[in-house]
Design a protein around this nucleic acid. Structure first.
Lengths: 110, 110
DNA sequence: CGCTTATATACGCCAGACGTTATACTCCGC
DNA sequence: GCGGAGTATAACGTCTGGCGTATATAAGCG
């Protein structure tokens, strides 16, 4: 499953948000989603693992998950193309982008 | 369908990429995906429309689609939290982020 | 008007994603 | 080594997304 799909799932985004603070054992993540069973969360963790979005470290019987944000760079790279449209002040990047997309329209930003 | 799911589909990302250059009539977008039938592309366009990612303008019989990137800002906002981790040089933003997440690890960026 | 072109919708099908329950695995403490 | 805690996998059901075929809608044109 690619990063875009992995991140499309709200629960998985929530997991990443939890891990953005600091690493956490699986059990803590399971507890964070009372609406889900342990296997459900475990499978989300598997998908995040396979998408390279998280790392696991064994600590005895516990599995400690941590964020591995490099995979998100792909998403970010895709966004670069569009960021210029809504007026984000990322001028440093625009030079890079202007070379491949030039003479464009600039949509209203709602 | 939320923006994350809308963008998770490769064909839809490709459509957005095409529209990033300039607006295009539906027929041209259909032609850009020989592997898909006209209704298939049309349905993707509907989803992009409903997710506020594109705009349509009637031109006689033709429907001219254009990018409406404001919706992508939501995705971008979510990414802000993580961008600091892989060392993107977005220093202007980091000040903003440092206040809410401090004392973190910095993962290797592969 | 009737025909053609451009696009959207209706419908049925299938694969895959997500959930649950049940079970296996593995490490720890006694 | 045995029981239990922590976690992963298996097996299975259900629902949804995306595809294709067929059809509707609507505008242009002779």
């Amino acid at each position: 499953m690619d990063v875009f799909e992995a991140v499309a799932e709200p629960t998985r985004r929530a997991v990443l948000d939890l891990l953005a603070g600091h690493e956490r054992p699986a059990g803590e993540l399971v507890a964070a989603f009372p609406a889900l069973t342990q296997p459900a969360v475990s499978r989300h963790l598997r998908i995040l693992r396979e998408s390279q979005l998280v790392d696991v470290r064994a600590d005895g019987t516990r599995r400690v998950y941590s964020l591995r944000p490099a995979a998100l760079a792909e998403l970010d790279r895709w966004l670069y193309t569009y960021r210029r449209f809504w007026g984000a002040r990322l001028d440093a990047l625009e030079g890079h982008l202007d070379s491949k997309t030039s003479g464009q329209r600039e949509e209203e930003a709602k």
